[in-house]
Computed example of a mutant assay.
Amino acid sequence: MLAGRGQLVHIDRDEHGVMEVIDDQFTRSLYFGTAARQSSMSHADPVTLVLSYTRAMLAGLLFQPRPREILIIGLGGGSLLRFLAHHYPRADITVVEYRQAVIDIARRFFRLPDQPRIRILHEDATGFIHNPAQPLYDLILVDAFDAAGLHPGIACEHFLQACQQRLRQGGLIALNLWNTDKISCRAHIRCFENALRQRSLRLPVESRNNLIVFGAPHLERLPSRRALQATVPALKQQLGLDFAYLHRQLRRHNTLPLQWLFN
C-alpha cells in the first residue's frame, strides 16, 4: 500500500501484481503497487486529462485531427477513452487490455463510458493487432504499462510493424515510453523507427519520465507550419488542450524541420 498518497478506496491482486485505487481531495488514481500513478481522474470533471503524458499523447491530433476509428492499447483507468469518447462522439473506439482485473476496476471506479461504439476487449494486444479481421485505424495510442514498466511485447519491431499495417491512409501511431532507462528507451525508439521505416517525432513530457514518440508512415511529408498553425486554435477550441504549447514542444525537440522527417 502507498502510505500518504490519500485514501485507499480499493485494492486487488491478480497474477501480474497489485492494483490500488486511491483518492485524494481532487483526483482518483490507479496504482500498480508502485509510487507511479498509472491513471488519474478528476472528481469534478472525469473527462479532463489530469496527467500531462496523456495530453502529450494527443499531440498527434495535430496531424490527424478527425479520427473516425481509434485503437487504444492499454486501458489503465480509462483517461484517454473517456476524453476521446466525449470529444469524438462519432468515432468508433476499441480498447485492448490484457488484464481482466484492470477492466473490472476501471468499470467500477473510473466511470468508463458505456456505448455501442466503444469496445473494451480482454485480449493480448500482440494477438489482436495481427488479426486481419480487425478494421484499419486513424489513430493508434499505445500505452501498455505494468508495475515493471512497458509491456515487453509492445515495443518490439514485429508488433509495431503490425500496428503500422493496421493504419488507414493518413493514420498515426503514438507510443508512450518510460524515459528513465535511457538505453532501453533508445532501443525502443530504434525498434519503432525500424518498424515504420522512418524517423519518429519525439515529445518528452515535462516533469515526468515519459517520452512520447509519434509515427505517421503513410504521409510523405507533414503539413506545413502554416497549415498546422491553422489547426492549432481549432483543436484547442474543440478539445480544450493547449495545442499551441504541444506544437512548440514538438518543434523544440525535433531538430530537423518537420517536413523532412518523412522524406
Rank of each mutant, 00 (worst) to 15 (best):
M41S: 03
M41H: 07
S42K: 11
H43S: 02
A44Q: 14
A44S: 15
A44L: 13
A44M: 08
D45Q: 12
D45V: 09
D45F: 06
D45E: 12
P46V: 06
P46G: 08
V47H: 10
V47R: 14
T48H: 05
T48C: 15
T48P: 07
V50F: 07
L51I: 08
L51D: 15
L51W: 04
L51Q: 15
S52P: 05
S52Y: 09
Y53C: 02
Y53P: 09
T54L: 11
T54F: 14
T54P: 02
R55K: 14
R55T: 13
R55Q: 15
A56N: 11
M57V: 03
M57N: 07
M57P: 00
L58D: 00
L58Y: 09
L58W: 04
A59N: 03
A59W: 10
G60F: 00
G60W: 06
L61S: 05
L62Y: 00
L62D: 06
Q64D: 02
Q64V: 13
Q64T: 13
Q64W: 06
Q64H: 08
P65Q: 09
P65I: 10
P65S: 13
P65R: 12
P67N: 05
P67E: 05
P67S: 03
R68C: 11
R68N: 15
R68P: 01
E69I: 08
E69T: 08
E69F: 10
I70D: 04
I70W: 06
I70P: 00
L71G: 05
L71A: 14
L71D: 03
L71R: 06
L71P: 01
I72A: 02
I72Q: 01
I72Y: 04
I72V: 14
I73D: 07
I73S: 13
I73C: 15
L75D: 05
L75W: 08
L75K: 05
G76C: 08
G76T: 09
G77I: 08
G77L: 12
G77A: 10
G77C: 07
G78M: 08
G78C: 07
G78K: 05
G78L: 00
L80V: 11
L80M: 10
L80D: 04
L81V: 12
L81Q: 03
L81D: 06
R82H: 04
R82P: 12
R82I: 05
F83L: 06
F83Q: 02
F83D: 05
L84N: 01
L84R: 01
L84K: 14
A85Y: 02
A85E: 01
A85K: 03
H86Q: 14
H86G: 02
Y88P: 03
Y88G: 09
Y88D: 11
Y88C: 09
R90K: 15
R90V: 05
R90I: 06
A91K: 04
A91D: 03
D92A: 15
D92V: 12
D92Q: 15
D92M: 13
D92Y: 10
I93V: 11
I93C: 09
T94W: 04
T94H: 12
T94E: 11
T94R: 13
T94F: 01
